[in-house]
């Protein structure tokens, strides 16, 4: 019984169906329950909340990521899935709290660096990290290095994600890392970077831990650096 509903959750995450009114990607889902309804149903059936999260929602998003990587899915497919999972997480949260489960896989601070106002990629990364179960604090755009470092300290974050879309603002990524060093925070927090002009090479040059080419790469890096201890 619980396997059935977990499977349904996975397939509806893949369809990006938040509730029964959503059309989904393929035809033939009309009037069937979507992710939020299925999660409620599973909780009523007494399915373990951690199981719903790990084997249903998170597994569903992993599969969405795989389909994106192979080119079967596009960004809107991914956004619909992430939105469905986000809505389901709101239902799950009180149950996770009651059970004393860890609320998230860790705290991530994310920002577009100083003098840069591009936010499309950063927002996608933010949505995908939330969908994958991280607690994300999005500081927005045009965020000075000092502010990012302050928030890292205040929130005791395990990971910082920096975005820049311009050659002229990339140096502010380096400045942010320096700021973390100056405040003796650099050993306590991992730093990942992204944005069209950035690269693996640039990440190494400025002493970031890694570069992510897209939102799924960012999620994989977050898993690697925060959940699997760098493996």
């Amino acid at each position: 019984m619980s396997e059935d509903i977990i499977d349904k959750i996975i397939s509806n995450v893949l369809q990006g169906r938040r509730d029964k009114d959503d059309e989904g990607i393929d035809e033939g889902y009309e009037d069937q329950p979507g992710v939020t309804e299925l999660v409620n149903e599973a909780l009523e059936q007494g399915v373990d909340v951690e199981k719903i999260l790990a084997e249903g929602l998170s597994r569903g998003m992993e599969l969405v990521g795989e389909k994106y990587e192979t080119g079967e899915y596009f960004i809107p497919d991914m956004l619909a899935a992430a939105e469905a999972v986000g809505a389901a997480m709101e239902i799950m949260e009180p149950h996770l709290l009651k059970k004393g489960s860890k609320e998230s896989k860790g705290k991530v601070i994310i920002a577009t660096v100083e003098k840069d106002i591009h936010d499309i990629g950063k927002n996608l990364v933010s949505i995908m990290l939330k969908g994958a179960g991280f607690a994300v604090i999005d500081l927005g755009i045009n965020v000075p290095a000092s502010r990012i470092a302050e928030e890292v300290e205040k929130e005791n974050a395990g990971l910082v994600g920096l975005s820049a879309l311009l050659d002229t603002t990339m140096p502010f990524m380096a400045k942010t890392i320096e700021e973390l060093e100056n405040r003796n925070l650099r050993d306590k927090v991992k730093v990942i970077i992204g944005g069209a002009p950035t690269s693996d090479q640039f990440a190494r040059e400025i002493g970031a831990d890694a570069f992510g080419a897209d939102a799924f790469a960012a999620v994989n890096l977050a898993e690697k650096l925060m959940v699997r201890g760098g493996k």
């Binding site: 311009l166 050659d167 002229t168 990339m170 990524m173 380096a174 069209a196 002009p197 690269s199 640039f202």
Partner: peptide, 11 residues
């Protein structure tokens, strides 16, 4: 010609 070097002299 923004190549992603992050160096303005280059650009």
């Amino acid at each position: 010609v923004a190549t992603g070097s992050g160096k303005s002299e280059k650009e």
